[in-house]
């Protein structure tokens, strides 16, 4: 069976749409993200310049294998680079710009309304998925609003989600690397970059934001691709997909199964938490491709 193109042909509506308010909202939030990322990098370069520069290089190079994999999987079929660059930029700048204060606020609220202990243990499991999943998905929605009709199939919209997630993932990893360098317990500037690359990039990278956002974007894709379906069902699929991404992200960030880390079965910890994420993304991708080809 010949797979259907992932999206509309490149002759479809361009993404430079100055008459669309969504275009300017997208651009405005990107500028905010540039400011956030720039300030963080500036602070990093002042305190730990080698870590910050090396981290930038490492995480830029880290982006290439997933892009190659996405290409092999056919995510980019039928579209030029522009929408994917825009999706990646949203994830790395727009979503991060909004997620940084939101995460801080949820950590603060968890500490105040429950306890500092609770915030320390469960803050990431609440803030991460509750803030980051909707904010990443906003980028997909914005691109659909900027060029309505350009992305009409579930795979094309899942591809946007994956790229948004990848952008968020590498910028977040870079932020973590710089923060780790600022708090690193010695003057060594290479160690925090290597440690973060191994832990966040290699051990945890496969089952991270790209997969979550692809899962969440499946629902938006279904909503867009099935205008003939009852509205309630389309909304349910969209909400369910976002809910699934939220749950998997929350499970990953939670202290659940942490006891495995210190025991005999420590090697099961990452796959037990991460495999459901990757499998969900792969299964939904196959479903979407088959449905588009039908």
């Amino acid at each position: 069976m010949k797979p259907a193109p992932a999206s509309a042909p490149s002759s479809a509506l361009p993404l430079f749409q100055p008459r669309q308010p969504a275009f300017w909202l997208y651009a405005l939030l990107l500028v905010g993200g540039l400011h956030t990322a720039g300030m963080m990098a500036l602070g990093g370069f002042t305190v730990m310049p080698l870590s910050t520069g090396l981290g930038l290089l490492v995480w830029t190079l880290y982006t290439l294998p997933p892009l190659w994999l996405f290409r092999k999987l056919g995510l980019f079929r039928g579209q030029p680079a522009t929408p994917f660059v825009m999706a990646f930029a949203w994830g790395g700048l727009g979503a991060v710009y909004l997620a940084v204060p939101a995460n801080q606020a949820i950590f603060g609220l968890a500490a105040k309304l429950v306890s500092p202990e609770f915030s320390h243990a469960w803050g990431a499991a609440i803030a991460g998925p509750s803030d980051e999943e909707p904010l990443k998905l906003l980028g997909v929605v914005l691109l659909l609003l900027i060029a309505p009709g350009r992305f009409r199939t579930i795979p094309s919209i899942m591809a946007l989600g994956a790229l948004v997630g990848l952008g968020f993932q590498v910028v977040e990893d870079y932020f973590y690397t710089v923060n780790a360098a600022l708090g690193h317990p010695s003057a060594n500037q290479i160690e925090p970059v290597v440690q973060n690359l191994i832990v966040r990039g290699i051990l945890c990278g496969l089952w991270s934001h790209a997969a979550y956002s692809a899962v969440a974007a499946f629902g938006v894709g279904y909503f867009v691709a099935h205008p003939e379906a009852p509205f309630a069902r389309r909304l349910l699929v969209a909400a369910g997909s976002l809910g699934a991404a939220w749950a998997m992200h929350g499970f990953w960030n939670s202290p659940l199964l942490a006891s495995l880390m210190g025991g005999t079965w420590f090697f099961l910890y990452l796959p037990l938490k991460g495999l459901p994420v990757v499998l969900s993304a792969i299964i939904l991708w196959r479903v979407a491709r088959q449905e588009s080809a039908a």
Partner: peptide, 26 residues
């Protein structure tokens, strides 16, 4: 590939969500 009509309701909905996360929670 003609310019579509401006989609204000959708954009305002996205703006509302962005404002909630970016400033409302803070």
């Amino acid at each position: 590939a003609s310019a579509p009509r401006p989609n204000w309701p959708g954009t305002l909905a996205v703006l509302a969500v962005a404002l909630f996360y970016g400033f409302g929670l803070t």
